[in-house]
Amino acid sequence: MRHFDGDVGEMPVPPLDDRALEALLSGGSSAQSGFDWLLPFVEELGEASRGSAPPMTPALALLVAEGFSIDKVELPAPNAAGRSTWTRKPVLTGLAAKFASLGMVGKAAMGLTLVAASTTAAGAAGVLPAPAQHAVATVVDAATPFTFPDETKDKANFGATVSADATGGSDGAPGVDGKAVSDAARNKTKPDDTPGAPAGNGVGANTGAKGLDRANQTPAAGHAPTSVPGGGGAAVVPGAPAANGLGTANSTPAAGKVPTSVPPVTRAAPAGAPGPNGLDTPGTTPAAGRGPARP
């Protein structure tokens, strides 16, 4: 069939604006001059648009019969019988969907946030391993007004506390109660909680025979002195090797001439001196000076 494209010999047609269209569609074409010829066509179109609704496919029938579920809104009273199925999405499902919709960067950021929050909570509860607890406590102490438990920090300060007590720096009275210090050291330290720690670390880890056992494993084991050189701490140099002061003793001119007696100690060790090992009052035991020199 030949198509009329209207380019040649086009009949003049008045413009069909919205008002003319409404008049035409409502059957009032007589008021619109020039469109009477179109009325039969429009009526035919109307006839083609009337009739019954076509049968529904199963998918559409299911949708119309069941409706769909969205968050409940206020509804007017239905004019016909119908069922409504209102449900709410579970919160966790919604969160999971939001997480799934995040990009890689978003997921990574959320993961780091969760890890940081979990670590902080565990740090507050003091249930982290000692090194992690120390790290968290350090950060929290520096960044917030809060203080988290830090066993490592407590251990590190114990020797300095005893030293200060011994010199009278803390309370003005030189000397400490050896039993009290011993008890405190036992409470602070468990024998096996610092595996591999060097002997004489000043926090009570080298208690009793264990320190001697370690000393006997050193190259100087066969030259172990049976007593400590004269009081005044001359044989003990801060920063010298720790094990029982043997490193220092063997490097002095008097090496090999180990004294056989211990002169009486008449004064307490100076502040910061390696005197106490956390168990005894300075200068009162042959093991005085076992602890490492503390700057």
Binding site: E66, A81, G82, S84
Partner: peptide, 9 residues
């Protein structure tokens, strides 16, 4: 809101 009667109408 998903009311079946309205969808049908």
């Amino acid at each position: 809101a998903g009311a079946p009667w309205a969808l049908e109408r």
